[in-house]
Design a protein around this nucleic acid. Structure first.
Lengths: 196, 196
DNA sequence: AAACAATACGAACGGTCGTGCTACATTCGG
DNA sequence: CCGAATGTAGCACGACCGTTCGTATTGTTT
């Protein structure tokens, strides 16, 4: 069962496809993903890629899942290892800004772009993206609540979490749309003021 | 020249098409706009719609222009009539949140969705969207600078403008993606704290 | 060794896309 | 009133889409 060469090979191709898929989707959206394009770029057959996922929607869902794993490994997991309260809050914001600025995905934050794409369209893809986005928002919120409980901060933790999340996303949006890094500097100043 | 029945008819059809186009694009994006779909929904011929714009890119540019006019009439123009400084800043934020919440465009803020779609793709459409978005950001920034100059507020006007813009967009994003109006309430609380 | 499962392929399907070309009313300027 | 300009329709095109099918290959299981 573990030493199954077929599954191993299939998984390797799957990973290859998904690595490309998340990059494509971060620029052209999940609708801009096309089986033919992926197959051509990776020198695979279109039907082979299709067979790997079963349908375009399944490919989209797998792409969201793959992007979530990358996002977690860059932003959430390292921040979760930092001591609770304001230090962890700072880590979340800084990791996220870095993740956006370094273009872990070439189109900027994957979930920002894809979220805006599917926000007004019902379906399983929408739900998957909303769940991923919501779980990150919850992580910020819980950390903010903790920071207040620990006496690191005063005020409304929910509003603070909303503000921090908003500032990061705005920096990503402005930087990707207009180029330059000025937006990140503005966000860092605003976040710093909120967490001092 | 003014009493040109042909041009009048052409303009009327053009307006008809664009009104639908902005609604479609706010949900499905500028790439989701298709000549065939617009023609079918409006009971026109595909080639007729095509001839009206000359190319899909021209249709997209005209759609952005039409959306900008609607945006201005709802948000910018009424706010520009309010006395400068903090009152005008409040008006901008409140008009914008209303514009998003009332779903002037069915997919939420047109420029938020379309901006995320074209942000990482070069071209004339990208430039048009970036210019529109930038001019609104500049309007907020100038109003914030004025508010500081008038002594209504202290602090960094650029950062403040960035924060206000960020809070509005985040409210739009969360509300459209997850439903409900809680995000607007959070944004209003945060904006109120920033402008008191 | 035989039966089976999974990868990957090439070819083809019906459909939609953007884009031309042609044709025909309608309405204009002279 | 006539020729030109214009709005709109019909039709066909090549390209690409997601999907299906048949098939060769390869690894696993019994």
């Amino acid at each position: 069962m573990p030493a199954d060469g077929r599954l191993a090979r299939g998984d390797a191709t799957r990973r290859l496809v998904l690595r490309r898929a998340v990059d494509v989707a971060s620029v052209d959206g999940l609708e801009g993903l096309s089986l033919g394009r992926l197959a051509t770029e990776l020198e695979l057959s279109k039907s082979g890629v299709f067979a790997l996922f079963g349908s375009k929607e399944e490919l989209q869902l797998a792409t969201v899942e793959a992007a979530l794993e990358i996002f977690r490994s860059y932003v959430v997991t390292p921040a979760a290892a930092v001591e609770p309260g304001v230090p962890r809050l700072r880590a979340i914001c800084e990791n996220w800004l870095d993740y956006s600025e370094k273009r872990v995905f070439p189109g900027g934050c994957f979930f920002f772009n894809v979220g805006a794409e599917v926000d007004a369209r019902p379906g399983r893809v929408h739900d998957a993206v909303a769940a991923a986005s919501g779980s990150f928002a919850a992580f910020i919120r819980e950390t903010a609540v903790e920071a207040v409980a620990l006496g690191h901060l005063t005020g409304d933790a929910e509003v603070l979490a909303f503000e921090l999340h908003a500032l990061g996303r705005a920096a990503n949006a402005d930087a990707v749309l207009n180029g330059g890094t000025q937006a990140y500097a503005l966000a860092r100043r605003a976040i710093g003021a909120r967490l001092s």
